[in-house]
Nucleic acid binder design. Structure first.
Length: 294
DNA sequence: TTTATTTGACCCGT
DNA sequence: ACGGGTCAAATAAA
């Protein structure tokens, strides 16, 4: 490694349409707005949980409170999952196109035989049939193991964009990738540096930490109690720092080091994980965060 | 020695 | 031609 890595950015996937028109596209905007609000709500609830639970005595009441927090987050996660389904079906209706660029729509041509025409091609250009973007102060802590494979300076962006693919890409042919880009400015002075994370493709791997749960909301039903001790004990023992912990989960050893700014906002690191709820974010992971935040 | 990251080059879609 | 996603050799770290 020659230099510190700065996963970066600003908004990668802006709202697709102006809400001004009354064509069907405004529905997509509504979805985005609602999803954004739910994400905020999840974040706030998670933060509140991190504050409240440690303050309670370890008794039945605290368990009840923990369960209630979990239920609230679970509801939000389900709502988010449903909205994403709606959002994706909107994309699917969009004449075979999807947004992956702030300036234009990328077409998805049917070039299934193109590769045969040009066998010398070193690599295929990935075509993103599905992607989910979110903003988070903890871009690497999503419970998956990622391996960085590229970084680029993006036109008109202050910070370079980092490219990650699933660690099990080769072993298990998992096609999932993600890009991380730091936003130019924070939402507010009391908020940490935010990153836009865009996930492409579904995880098909089954290896360590890589569940194959997909976005099925039924997968989020594990209880706080039952899900925590079994898995997290083997993980939380690695470190006491949220970023070290994240590194151990991610397998991206460097990424955490460059985020000193975020490290000053542990509460956000520890709590603002709810944005991943719709991305196969299991409760044990939230639980781990909770402990760090405590 | 193995594994992960960096980074310039390559490739493709627009 | 340009912008951005990916590759892969070189390099660093464990």
């Amino acid at each position: 490694m020659k230099q510190r890595h700065h996963p970066n950015n600003s908004r990668v996937y802006p709202p697709r349409q102006s809400p001004a028109s009354d064509d069907p596209s405004h529905v997509v905007c509504d979805h985005r707005l609602v999803m954004k609000e739910i994400t905020k709500e999840q974040s706030l609830v998670t933060q509140l949980r991190a504050i409240v639970l440690p303050a309670l005595q370890a008794d039945e009441r605290s368990e009840l409170v923990a369960q209630m927090f979990h239920n609230i987050l679970d509801c939000s996660s389900k709502a988010m999952a449903k909205l994403q389904l709606l959002h994706q079906s909107d994309d699917a209706r969009d004449d075979g196109t999807h947004v992956d660029d702030k300036k234009r729509l990328r077409r998805i041509p049917d070039d299934s035989n193109k590769e045969d025409v040009k066998p010398h091609h070193k690599h295929k250009r990935r075509r993103f049939a599905d992607s989910v973007s979110l903003e988070t102060p903890v871009p690497h802590y999503d419970g998956r193991q990622w391996r960085k494979y590229g970084q680029k300076n993006i036109n008109k962006e202050k910070h370079p964009r980092s490219y990650y693919r699933c660690t099990y890409r080769h072993e298990q042919d998992c096609k999932a990738t993600k890009t991380v880009q730091q936003k130019d400015e924070s939402i507010g002075s009391d908020y940490p540096v935010m990153y836009t994370v865009v996930y492409h493709g579904q995880h098909t791997c089954k290896g360590n930490n890589c569940s194959d749960s997909g976005t099925d909301d039924s997968e989020t039903k594990t209880t706080l109690q039952s899900s925590s001790d079994s898995q997290q004990s083997s993980i939380s023992g690695y470190c006491s720092d949220p970023f070290d912990h994240q590194r151990s989960l991610d397998g991206n050893k460097l990424v955490g080091k460059s985020e000193d700014v975020i490290a000053e906002n542990n509460i956000y690191q520890a709590c603002d994980m709810s944005a991943f709820a719709s991305l196969e974010f299991d409760s044990w992971e939230l639980d781990v965060l909770l402990r760090f935040g405590a």
